[in-house]
Design a protein around this nucleic acid. Structure first.
Length: 432
RNA sequence: GUGAGCAUAGCUCAAUUGGUUAGAGCACUGGACUGUGGCUCCAGGGGCUGGGGGUUCAAGUCCCCUUGUUCACCCCA
């Protein structure tokens, strides 16, 4: 029979990787909570229309990366490629604008994009994202940056750079866009010298020409108009105030006019947290403001800021750096014979219900073998039960670390364990 | 969608210029006088050399195709 394997770009996350993920989630959730965010579980499938309307029909995500299919009733369904559209949908669908504002929620889960996998990029990948709705003020943008910064500090993530940009709004961005197109089309020779990709970009998304890595394009765009020269007063003031708040809390940022979000809904602030340790996919978190999306979805006009962290990328950066432990059993029962097994099963059930991690050896194996397993599992204590012990109504209580053992009467076993929970062995996980 | 590199045991890797039954370490399982772990020693299981085709007396090794994978482009978390 043919061996099955995961689909391209889709991974099983197993030990020890998953322990690192658990730790990341645990720490991140705690920080999100401190900033007033609660989780919202959004579905993995939505109507395709939701993403087309939200992310934009011409975006790469929608035009070539969505997992789209028809359900049995012929409705077009898509696996979510991102979380924001769903959260905004949920906000409107449940009338959550009628709950106390502002509205702060986060989500954790897999996203799906049909792309060629490479370092830090997968077809099923996990995001931890949060959305802050109902606050148009620059301080909201800064609070989001501060929150990501706090998460990364809590995780001891090293060497991250905060890059920020303003992408303008619906009033000023078109002006800039036109200016840019005008710049590149002012002379036919200039247009022709652009690379083929850029010729397409010039029509589809001119801002991306600024991001091209072809040398001739880099040369050609010298002297091109800058977004900062075209943003309206409101956007400029917003941007300045936003950066002022970052200065206020000593967050070093780099202004990068090349940050052009690939999702159409962004306005004003756009940002990325980048690192040099991730290969080409260097953004570990990214986001921005989207003041029109809620209204575009038919909700009340509601300003919003949000972001998403790439969990795989974060985990990649934290391998070796975050101490991750797996709990070993406090008690391992080594049992000889059926009666011993019965006793161990009863005892261990009691201990487990009291919150103690116990394991029971295989009664068919020799004592030596069971001790070997106990050791391999890094168990702290072994309770040996054999015929002799059953006859004496006692057990042997063995300390695997101090190499000591004593015979204790059955009634005394619980007392032996009491106060020893702190003695749990913790096995530090070694990522290699 | 485009380009390049790589596919040998669960993992990391060997295998003269093509040349016998494809090896090692780690891991796993068992054993070293029958009820005592770690160390050591011994043994064992496990590979159609990713799949298919071709060249050859002979292919893990050379050629072609295919699939997977890695990295990069595009784009993005």
């Amino acid at each position: 029979m043919k061996a099955y394997s995961t689909l391209k770009g889709v991974l099983d996350i197993l030990q020890p990787e998953i322990l690192l993920w658990n730790k990341i989630e645990e720490i991140t959730r705690a920080v999100l909570q401190n900033f007033g965010y609660t989780e919202l579980r959004i579905p993995i499938i939505e109507s395709t229309e939701l993403f087309i309307r939200g992310i934009g029909e011409t975006s790469d995500i929608v035009s070539k990366e969505m997992y789209t299919f028809n359900d049995r009733a012929g409705r077009s369904i898509s696996l979510r490629p991102e979380g924001t559209a769903s959260l905004v949908r949920s906000y409107i669908e449940h009338g959550l604008n009628n709950t106390p504002q502002p509205w702060k929620y986060y989500y954790i889960g897999p996203m799906f994009r049909y792309e060629r996998p490479q370092k830090g990029r997968f077809r099923q990948f996990y995001q931890i994202g949060a959305e802050f709705l109902g606050n148009a003020a620059p301080v909201a943008d800064a609070e989001i940056i501060s929150m990501i910064d706090t998460i990364f500090k809590a995780l001891h993530l090293p060497d991250v750079t905060v890059e920020v940009n303003t992408t303008g709004c619906r009033l000023c961005r078109p002006l800039y866009r036109d200016a840019l197109v005008g710049f590149f089309t002012s002379e036919a020779s200039k247009t022709n010298m652009l690379c083929d990709d850029c010729k397409v970009r010039l029509v589809k998304n001119p801002l991306r020409v600024l991001d091209c890595k072809v040398p001739t394009c880099i040369e050609l765009r010298k002297g091109a108009p800058l977004i900062t020269e075209y943003v309206c007063d409101e956007c400029r003031e917003h941007d300045e105030a936003f950066k002022g708040f970052l200065n206020e809390i000593d967050i070093k940022y780099v202004e990068n006019p090349e940050i052009v979000r690939g999702l159409d809904y962004y306005t004003k602030t756009a940002f990325e947290f980048t690192t040099e340790h991730l290969g080409a996919q260097k953004a570990v978190a990214a986001g921005g403001r989207y003041d029109n999306l809620v209204a575009d979805f038919g909700g009340p006009k509601t300003p919003a800021v949000g972001f998403a962290i790439g969990v795989e990328r974060l985990a990649e950066l934290l391998r070796q750096r975050l101490d991750v432990y797996v709990c070993a059993p406090l008690i391992f029962f080594a049992v000889l014979g059926k009666e011993a097994q019965r006793m161990a099963f009863k005892l261990s059930t009691r201990y487990r219900q009291a919150g103690v991690y116990t394991e029971i050896g295989n009664a068919l194996h020799t004592l030596k073998n069971q001790l070997k397993r106990a050791d391999k599992m890094a168990a702290r204590f072994v309770i040996i039960i054999g015929e002799e012990e059953i006859n004496k109504n006692a057990v042997i209580f063995k300390d695997l670390v101090n190499h000591t053992q004593e015979e204790v009467p059955l009634e005394g076993v619980l007392g032996c364990i009491k106060g020893k929970q702190a003695a749990y062995n913790k096995q530090k996980i070694n990522f290699s």
